[in-house]
């Protein structure tokens, strides 16, 4: 994929509208940054386990009990609200 196409593709996946200038700027920068990321290719990583969490924590779980909540503060932050609903423009 060409650099600018890659930037457009990941911008679409990230739901970010870029200006043309941003597309050009980012594609130049990405070429350099990704090249730098590629230094990892020097490593022989075949048998190495990836890290999932740095501490040996496991089985963190809570018991199944429900509590009443106060939703008003959460609804108060809605950019668009009608009664107790959040609202957005149509999905299609």
């Amino acid at each position: 994929m060409k650099d600018i196409e890659l930037v457009r593709y990941v911008a679409k996946l990230s739901a970010i509208k870029l200006t043309e200038e941003e597309e050009i700027k980012f594609s130049k920068q990405f070429a350099k940054i990704i090249e730098y990321f590629n230094t990892l290719n020097e490593l022989e990583l075949g048998d190495v386990e990836p890290v999932f969490s740095v501490l040996p924590l496991k089985n963190v779980m809570r018991t199944d009990s429900a509590e009443a909540k106060n939703p008003e503060k959460i609804l108060d932050n809605a950019p668009d609200r009608e009664e107790n609903y959040f609202k957005t423009p149509k999905t299609i």
Partner: peptide, 23 residues
């Protein structure tokens, strides 16, 4: 009623974190 069984976790408020229900 709509949006009454909600909290910072299930509405994705900034900084909220999940804790798994064993059931």
């Amino acid at each position: 009623p709509p949006n009454t069984h909600i909290c910072e976790v299930c509405t994705g408020q900034p900084g909220a974190l999940p804790v798994f229900n064993k059931k």
